[in-house]
Simulated assay, not measured.
Amino acid sequence: METTFHRHRRLRSSASMRRMVRETELSVSDFIYPVFVTEGQQIKSEVPSMPGVYQLSLDLLKKEIEEVIRLGIEAVIVFGIPEHKDHVGSEAYHDHGIVQKAISKIKEDFPDLIVIADTCLCEYTDHGHCGIVENGDILNDESLELLARTAVSQVRAGADIIAPSNMMDGFVAAIREALDQEGFTNIPIMSYAVKYASAFYGPFRDAAGSSPQFGDRKTYQMDYANRLEAKREAKSDIEEGADFIIVKPTLSYLDIVREVKNDCLLPVVGYNVSGEYSMVKAAAQNGWIDEKALVIEMLTSMKRAGCDLIITYFAKDAAKWIAE
């Protein structure tokens, strides 16, 4: 009797055949590139733990954005390193804060580029937490007003999208209400709805100078062991008015990306975070991996899992590799 089995290799027989049946295509338009801006002049300071990532002063920002646009990247997310910090993070919502100045400059020079503002307090507070601190506690409701003020000031500066990353309860509702009251009803909110308390953030805190000066962020960021909590967080932010849902980190949380995507009709954004970037860069510098092949595979896996967009420090490199 003849044995019958499936011949799956028929669809892998050549490069052309494999391209024809490929299910997931990575595109430059999928990428959002993070930009770190700082006060001063002629500053291009490489982040020690993130090779190829720089803190840039405003006068060097135009050249950086020109390269981003030339590569076909259509969106950036802006993070700021202020000159002064205080206990309430006032530079976050000051109309002449570093992020506000950067957004205005980018939109003046490149009006068609989508500029996303990271909306948080941790980079601007002297204690490094994402809200007001009182007697060692991070106050939730009292922090919402400052986060809403920050969002409004960023939109006034020209931000196209607000991306609140603070993980206070009710932050989307507070920001949506404040934006609407100011007439900014058409500004979308890209919520860091599913943000885990992760060890993968270490190099970012190097880049943004946002390490907490005491304790940790586990009372407001999520336990990395939890899956159902992610579904609850995403659901509540959608009900409060979010327009995009971010899952952060992404590489070790592809199962969460898929869970959120299955439940959510909004665009899902993966944040390919600093630790994920730095591990690959370190291995590549030691000659242990093929960086190009690994990065493209990694980013494709994020899209396959359900990411409609990917915030990634690899955006410029990946854009060049895709073009090749």
Score class of each variant (00 low, 15 high):
Arg7Thr: 02
Arg7Ile: 09
Arg10Gln: 10
Glu23His: 05
Glu23Tyr: 04
Glu25Arg: 13
Leu26Phe: 02
Ser29Asp: 06
Pro34Cys: 13
Val35Leu: 11
Phe36Gly: 08
Gln41Lys: 15
Ser45Ile: 01
Glu46Val: 11
Met50Trp: 07
Pro51His: 14
Leu58Phe: 09
Ile65Gln: 00
Gly72Met: 06
Glu83Phe: 14
Glu91Val: 08
Ile98Met: 15
Val99Pro: 04
Gln100His: 06
Val115Leu: 06
Tyr124Val: 10
Cys130Trp: 08
Asp141Glu: 15
Glu145Asn: 05
Ala157Asp: 04
Asp160Gly: 09
Pro164Cys: 15
Met168Phe: 14
Ile175Lys: 09
Arg176Gln: 11
Arg176Glu: 07
Glu177Asn: 14
Leu179Cys: 10
Thr185His: 07
Tyr201Cys: 11
Asp206Leu: 09
Ala208Thr: 10
Gly209Leu: 07
Phe214Lys: 12
Ala225His: 13
Arg227Trp: 04
Gly241Glu: 11
Asp243Gly: 08
Pro249Asn: 10
Ile256Ser: 01
Val257Arg: 01
Cys264Asp: 05
Val269Asn: 06
Tyr277Trp: 08
Ala282Arg: 14
Gly287Arg: 13
Ala293Ile: 08
Leu299Tyr: 11
Thr300Met: 04
Ala305Phe: 12
Asp308Met: 11
Ile311Thr: 06
Tyr313Asp: 07
Phe314Trp: 13
Ala319Tyr: 02
